[in-house]
Nucleic acid binder design. Sequence first.
RNA 1: GCGGCUGUAGCUCAGUUGGUUAGAGCGCCUGACUGUGACUCAGGAGGUCGCGGGUUCGAGCCCCGUCAGCCGCCCCA
Length: 417
Amino acid sequence: MALQPVRGTRDLLPEESLRYRHLTATARRIASLYGFGEIATPVFEFTDVFKRNLGDTTDVVTKEMYTFDDRGGESLTLRPEGTAAIVRAFISEGLAQQVPLRLYYEGPMFRYERPQKGRYRQFHQIGVEFFGASEPQADIEVMALAVQLLAELGLSDKTVLELNSMGDADSRTAYREGLVTYLRDHHAHLSDDSRIRLDKNPLRILDSKDENDRRIVAGAPSIAASFNALSADYFAAVKEGLDALGIAYKLSPTLVRGFDYYCHSVFEFTTTHLGAQGTVIGGGRYDGLVEMMGGPATPATGWAGGIERLAMLMQADPKPPRPIALVPIGETAERAALRMAQDLRRAGFAVDLGYKGNVGRRMKRANKVNACAAIILGDDELAAGAAKVKDLDSGTETTAALDALPAALAGYAAAKP
RNA sequence: GCGGCUGUAGCUCAGUUGGUUAGAGCGCCUGACUGUGACUCAGGAGGUCGCGGGUUCGAGCCCCGUCAGCCGCCCCA
């Protein structure tokens, strides 16, 4: 077999790594503006962490997890998502003492899925989780955080915030019952997939792509009709808050989550630019999860975003630094150049030092690495304790004293990473 | 897991109804140019045509399998 990366994995070469770094650095900075501290959990956990979270009948658990026994016979799983691991940490680190608590994370996740563009077996997510606040303001703030992130990544025009509410546990249960009753009446006309979903996860039928299913769903009872007063008030408060912040959103009455620990706000930032992989950020309120996993009852809200998908939407590549190129001429200058490169790097300049070739070759190299300036260092200059500084954009040359080089280069901000 | 499309140089691609030694552009290397990049010109390297099998006098081209990418479905906590 040819040497190739494992299916669904890929190498990040410098250009793409730079985009990844830019994205995570931006997310980290904005998260900190909202008071979120970074948490990093291991990439694998006891399998039970995810089974307990997801139930052991879902596709993710039964078909898509990278699960293995370690040498001690423990069943471990590469994390397929961030939230379960964060909640595990929240419980095992006793973080309930610190609520309200805002956490940010970023890193690789693993799912055994059929790969496509924007969908990989090792993929990366950024996410935020806000524990201990049951107020609508918490939902509003995490959405506002996402809005600001997308704006600073230049993606505001390419994404839409879709919003819905599932109400509290009572409303949700009432709705599910009403929906199932309605769908059973149309059982014969549902797609094969949806007939299976009717038993396993009826709410999922709401976002079926089957045309006939869609017609049936269009006549289904609305979730809002099942809201009790508390649920209706909550949703109204969320919408009011978003309006007050000037955040645009689109109400999506069929946007739901299949798990019982979700309640109230559910939202997704979607795009039409990535084909079937249209969701770039997905989130919602999950008040029941911490308790379900064995911790103290703790309200929580948050979201996770796919780094690969966000990166694909970004068109402007962040630029790497433009180095200063050193062009020594002759053996004496070669030795001096090595030292000079070191001094300039200590002063914070990116420096490119080619090892061979005549002046022409080295100048070509300077051009190829997109240097902003070349320092030409020959016997004549050395004897005078100076060097020539050539601006590679304008082509103009100046002479600078060796001991004042950093000052002479101060104008080249592009060379300071 | 299901259905479909596509794999030829580092990249983007051409390659006739199956017919000598598989091409182009870009990129890369060298020289024109021994102290000055970009532009230009000349030359060069780079391929098991994804991999394996089959049909044929002969396969990049046809058939089967397989691996990978992509599109849709499923799933998306």
